[in-house]
Each structure stands twice: as structure tokens, then as C-alpha cells.
Design a protein around this nucleic acid. Structure first.
Lengths: 188, 188
DNA sequence: ATAACCATGTAAATGGTTACATGATTAG
DNA sequence: CTAATCATGTAACCATTTACATGGTTAT
């Protein structure tokens, strides 16, 4: 499963340009589990057209480059369906955030706090955005993915909100260890 | 953030061989948000040693290749800490499972059911495994990541379990649309 | 006997990102 | 007047995966 197949998937919903697909991958329903930039999408679409899995129709526009709208062919749909029959491989997650938090004891607690807060904001904004385009009757698979994404983001946000302070307290305790006995009155 | 930094992170916990790191990335606490195979780990460790960010001690063994145990140096720790100061970029998830489900209407419902059930089993097994090595007093960041992972996997498993049947019913309804009126007695 | 585990590495191929190149239009 | 959006594409670079190469030990 690579960008080509992902583009084929996008085209199976409706004809689209490279620019459209980029947006679908960036902010659309697809974006949370598959991303790609122009640098991989445009070549992929060109390959698809070359191999007869999609056809292009160029719509001239003044000032801008021609808008190239790709449509999936029967052959393309066949390739997509064939690929979907493959048992999906395990998900691959790369989280710089979690790696950073894993080694939180190597950072100033204030910086850890900032990273956690920023991530929490991001999750909440994403959730807000996803809720807003909940919308009507899309295919069952799309709705399932949408719900799945929201459930997972919600759990992530809840965890961050619930555990943030505990993490920071523990980090502070490490760098400024509490005295082994109760502080004496002399400390005041 | 690449394999080199991830290896440096692993070595910051304790000295390890390439084989050890692979296991850490595969089944250890790190595995759920960062993965890498031998093909990237061994060259990364060689680079680290060449650049003075780690040192090797070779432990001869009979029959097997020498076990090469790498330890992080002060320079290596400095590089790791510097890297961790970078604001973490957005997580990148590649989920063939979700892509497949997104286009579930292009597959036989029975196959979709199999994929969902297998994924649910995987989540449950992973959760079981994570619970088993909950263990004692690791650094706060590690515990946080562990808890985060469990929260997210739990939400994913719960969602799959709760929505599986609804998805399948909807898919069946699409391929075998229910009649617009109540079925007559003649159908029996 | 068979599979899984221990243990390291290289080379080729794949896949993807980033930077570059170009430029009009629209909204604030 | 500035930023964002629309719109496409190439080339160089980077990172990672996969296949290859080797071979002993331990548990079922």
C-alpha cells in the first residue's frame, strides 16, 4: 500500500486533481491515517495515467496552470479492489511527541509542560474539526473510520488532561528531590 | 528525529546491542510509537560509533558473531538532549487497516468482518501484554507513555467491539438492499 | 526435526520529503 | 500590502525496507 493506491482510493470516490487529493490527505476524512505531499502525489498520478489506471481531462484556466482532473478507470478500480483484499499490515506510528515525553527527565519540566499543552490543544482542535464535519450519509466504512478517529483522539486528549499534572509533579520531584523527613519549622 | 536519535535514546537508558535495540523497538515500551528493523539499526549504530556518540565493546562468543555492546558517550547524550529540545512534529500514522475499512464497501462483508476481528484481537493481546509489564518505578516519562498507549489502545478496542456489528449490518444493507416495503408472505 | 531465538551485517531497491521553479487571484 | 489559496511539476536527497548472507543454540 503506497501513495499510488491511496490516490486510486481517493479517485474511487470522485474525480480529483492532485491539489484536491492533497487537501483530502491533509484535512479530509483520510488525513488522520494517511498523509502525502505534492512531491509524491503528482508523480503518482502521472504513473496512474501512464498505466491506464486513471484518465486525465485538462481544464484550461487563465493565469493558473491547467487543472488536471483525474478519473479512475475500470482497470484502476480493479487494482484498488485487489489491493484492498490484502490483509492490512500492522499500523505504523511515528510519534516524536511520545519519544520526547519518554525522555522527559532529560528536559526542563516547563518545556515538557509546553509540549503536552500544545499537543492537548491540537487534539482538541482536531476533535472540534472532526465533529463539525460529522455530516450525513457517507459509506459505512467512512463513518466507521471517522468514529474510530474521534474515539482515539478523545481518549488521547482525556489522558493528557488527566495525567499532565501528575507527570509534571513527578518530574519536579526528580530534579528537586523532597527531603526524606518532614521539613522542620526552621525552613519557614 | 531518525533512527540514530532513537538508538541514542535507547542507549541513554542502558548499554545495548543492535539486537537488544531491535527488541526494544519491537516489543518493549518504545515499540508502540517508534519502530525500526535491523537494516536501519545496525548502520545507525555504526555511524554513532564513528561520530563518537557511542562506544562499542565487543564481547566474543563462541559460535555466534561477537556481541557488540554500545554505550552512549557524553557527546551522544548532548546530541540526544539537543534533539529532544526540538518541538515534536505532528505524529505520523500510516494505517492500512483504516484505509481498508474506509473502502469497506468494495469488499465482501465477511472479509471486512475478518479484518476487524483480527485487529480487535491484536489490540486486546497488546493490551494484555502491556498490562503485564506495568511494573514498578520507571522514569515518569516512560510511565506516562505507557499509560497513554494503553488508554489509546483501550479506546480503539472498545470502539471496534462496539461498532463492529453496526458496520457489518450497514454493509450488508448496501449490497442486499432491503425492500422498500415490508416483505410479503410470498417470500416465505 | 522443526521452529524460534541469538547475533551481525551489506546492498539494492523503494518510497518519500524537501527544495526549487513559476505565477495569478482573492480575502483581510 | 500581505498572506493564503489555487495550481502543477521536477530533481536531489534522505531514510527505510527487503532481500541476501551466515550459522550456532535451545526449546518443543
Amino acid at each position: 500500500m503506497n501513495v499510488k493506491i491511496a490516490c486510486l482510493g481517493a479517485l474511487s470516490r470522485r474525480p480529483a486533481s492532485g491539489y484536491d487529493i492533497r487537501k483530502l490527505f491533509e484535512t479530509g476524512p483520510f488525513g488522520h491515517f494517511y498523509e502525502a505531499g505534492y512531491g509524491s502525489i503528482y508523480p503518482a498520478l502521472a504513473d496512474l495515467a501512464r498505466d491506464g489506471l486513471a484518465v486525465v481531462s485538462e481544464m484550461p484556466q487563465d493565469g493558473k496552470p491547467d487543472r488536471k482532473v483525474y478519473s479512475i478507470t475500470d482497470a484502476g478500480l480493479a487494482v484498488l479492489v485487489e489491493e484492498l483484499h490484502e490483509p492490512p499490515r500492522p499500523d505504523r506510528l511515528r510519534s516524536e511527541f511520545l519519544v520526547t515525553i519518554f525522555f522527559a527527565h532529560l528536559l526542563p519540566p516547563a518545556m515538557v509542560a509546553r509540549f503536552v499543552d500544545e499537543r492537548l490543544s491540537f487534539f482538541r482542535e482536531t476533535l472540534e474539526h472532526m465533529r463539525s464535519r460529522d455530516s450525513g450519509h457517507r459509506p459505512p466504512g467512512e463513518r466507521f473510520c471517522h468514529g474510530f478517529g474521534m474515539a482515539v483522539y478523545q481518549a488521547a486528549a482525556d489522558f493528557l488532561a488527566a495525567e499532565r499534572d501528575r507527570l509534571l509533579t513527578a518530574l519536579e520531584a526528580e530534579t528537586h528531590p523532597a527531603p526524606a523527613v518532614a521539613p522542620s519549622a526552621a525552613d519557614a
